[in-house]
């Protein structure tokens, strides 16, 4: 019983993380809509100069939010292990990739902190634009770990032919989201239009898909944990009854 309560607590870290991330990105850093790759170097320097403290606080909170996703991914792992048992290669791969995904938010955040650290640098604005590119390309487009993580979840669910932990459709759902993130790979080829990093087909689609994926996973997790609690309570009751019958 204690174990399922701990899992439920860790699962709730997920929505908290999303909340903190939205606060960081939207009102604080002002990155919704994101900085455009089509902006001139001077415009980009001005963005960091005008909202220096907002970006500093916002990007720090982004790292906090990213770290808070750790417990959420670990809860997914725990439920996957209910399917896989002790030798759980999918669960471990999922966990490792989830933790890497955290790093892929933390590193770009720190690169942006680097620009905001001395906003009045007397250097060529093109250099600032380059560093801004280095931060934004992975910030938006580092989907590979997430895609593979989703596939791991799907593979584990497909093993569970009795659908004890997760419903089967959740496996197909994860395959879908894994594929839905892939178009983000075209961001490297365009600095403007729907396929640039701030375009509808990269930033907005990835953001909405991550949101949908997250909440579907969260509610499925909550359900699976609640069912585990009931299952364990029944087992305990059985054990108690057996002891009583013996005595």
């Amino acid at each position: 019983m204690l174990n399922t309560k701990a899992q439920m607590r860790m699962a709730w870290m997920g929505p908290a993380a999303i909340f903190v991330f939205m606060i960081a990105l939207w009102p604080l850093a002002g990155f919704l809509p994101p900085i455009s790759p089509n902006d001139s170097a001077e415009e980009i320097v001005n963005i960091y100069r005008d909202n220096t403290d907002g970006i500093r606080v916002g990007m720090f909170l982004a790292t906090v939010a990213a770290a808070m996703m750790g417990p959420f991914y670990a809860t997914i792992t725990t439920q996957m292990k209910r399917i896989e048992g002790r030798f759980s290669v999918y669960a471990y791969t999922q966990l490792g990739l989830g933790m890497l995904a955290i790093l892929l938010v933390v590193i770009p955040s720190y690169i942006m902190q680097g620009i905001a650290y001395r906003p009045d640098r007397d250097i060529d604005p093109e250099v600032i634009r380059l560093i801004n590119d280095v931060a934004w390309l992975p910030f938006v487009g580092a989907f590979v770990t997430v895609s593979l993580q989703n596939i791991m979840i799907a593979l584990a669910i497909f093993q569970d032919t009795e659908q004890r932990v997760f419903p089967r459709w959740l496996g197909y759902f994860n395959i879908w989201t894994a594929l839905a993130f892939c178009p983000a790979a075209i961001e490297f080829f365009f600095t403007t239009g729907p396929f640039a990093w701030n375009g509808i087909f990269v930033f907005w689609l990835a953001l909405s898909f991550f949101g949908v994926w997250f909440f579907v996973m969260f509610f499925s997790l909550k359900k699976a944990i609640a069912e585990q609690a009931i299952e364990e309570a029944a087992l305990e009751a059985d054990a108690a009854a057996a002891v009583a019958a013996k005595g």
Binding site: R168, W169, Y172, F173, L179, A180, P183, F201
Partner: peptide, 18 residues
């Protein structure tokens, strides 16, 4: 199985956006 249609219709909706 019904689940596969979540994937197929979902994937087609991405193309619809495109």
């Amino acid at each position: 199985e019904p689940g596969v249609w979540i994937f197929i219709l979902g994937d087609m909706s991405i193309f619809a956006v495109l």
